[in-house]
């Protein structure tokens, strides 16, 4: 947030920008868009917990972006002479792991992998779910039946077991783990999108656009998607914690990221062997996963308040 947006600024120029953004009578398309965004930002900013979540995620993004500058050591550099050093050791704030690698540096580089997983899953799963759900809900009939029974089949499997099967078939590795998680994560989104579509498709504004001769493709993409996307975004941020944990779980089972990759779940898996004598080796990456998961949950709660169309009206 920049100073110009602050309400208590005395600067008249900033005041007029604020008035311009808060106007009830926008003068152009861009103005109306910016004004709507600013209103959303104001109501989001009022939610302290959501702002904390956003702050943590911005910090994570910053750390991932500048990992080479921030990390005190090479995350892959082994030093068997200084293995399993405790917390707050000189030069190794979070200690070292069983091969003498600096845990802080590995955490910092691991944030890149976490963000990579999050970004890929967030791109694939909700999009597939949105497509399947809205088409199923809008078209109805046998298309609906077929798509929803496929969704049921995917939903009936425990997520991690299905992901394990996919990874076993595709081969271990972080990309395949992401694909496997995405393939198991889309059915709930499809369900949500279908339920929303069913209520939207019989509404008067859909009838009205049908009377202008609009086809199914236009109605689904331009009229139904914008109304489904907000609830999907909320769900994605709330599910993100589960997705990070699933990725970590696959890493823990040795089917996700492969050594020596500093993926957080794989780090816990390595530290498990020494958990009684050297608890920090597993605990520190565990705390990192916990913090990021919590941040996504807080952000999701805040976004739900802002994006819910019923609340907006």
């Amino acid at each position: 947030m920049s100073d110009t947006h602050s309400p208590d600024t005395q600067n008249p120029e900033a005041q007029s920008l604020r008035a311009w953004l808060l106007t009830e009578t926008p003068t152009s398309r861009r103005h109306a868009k910016l004004s709507a965004l600013y209103h959303g930002w104001l109501s989001f900013r009022a939610n302290t917990m959501a702002m904390i979540g956003l702050g943590i995620l911005v910090a994570l993004l910053f750390v991932a972006l500048f990992a080479p500058l921030l990390a005190p050591h090479d995350p892959f550099e082994q030093n068997l002479g200084s293995r399993l050093l405790p917390l707050w050791t000189e030069g190794h704030v979070f200690g070292t792991d069983s091969l003498g690698r600096d845990i802080l540096s590995r955490l910092i580089y691991g944030s890149r992998i976490t963000l990579y997983i999050v970004a890929l899953v967030a791109l694939i799963a909700p999009l597939v779910g949105l497509l399947v759900g809205t088409v199923s809900g809008y078209v109805g009939g046998w298309v609906d039946t077929v798509l929803m029974r496929i969704t049921d089949i995917f939903l009936a499997f425990p997520r991690l077991v299905l992901a394990l099967a996919f990874v076993a078939a595709l081969g271990a590795g972080i990309e395949n783990a992401v694909i496997a998680i995405s393939l198991t994560a889309w059915p709930p989104y499809a369900r949500v999108a279908r339920a929303e579509t069913l209520t939207i498709r019989s509404s008067d504004y859909i009838s009205a656009i049908k009377l202008q001769g609009a086809g199914a493709f236009r109605i689904i993409t331009k009229h139904i998607w914008p109304l489904c996307i907000s609830s999907l975004i909320v769900r994605v941020t709330l599910d993100m914690a589960g997705i990070i944990l699933a990725a970590a779980g696959l890493g823990f089972l040795g089917l996700g990221a492969q050594p020596p990759s500093p993926e957080w779940g794989a780090m816990i898996s390595e530290g498990r062997r020494f958990i009684l004598d050297h608890w920090w080796v597993a605990t520190v990456p565990g705390l990192a996963i916990f913090t990021v998961s919590l941040a996504f949950n807080l952000l999701g709660d805040g976004l739900r308040d802002v994006l819910d169309p019923k609340a907006g009206d």
């Binding site: 398309r29 109306a32 509404s203 008067d204 504004y205 009838s207 009205a208 656009i209 009377l211 009229h223 914008p226 109304l227 169309p309 907006g312 009206d313």
Partner: peptide, 19 residues
């Protein structure tokens, strides 16, 4: 042929501007 609906609160898309 065009139609004007009964409830103006339901006949406009909530996310679309007049424009």
């Amino acid at each position: 042929v065009q139609m004007v609906f009964q409830d103006p609160y339901a006949s406009l898309h909530p996310r679309h501007s007049v424009d």
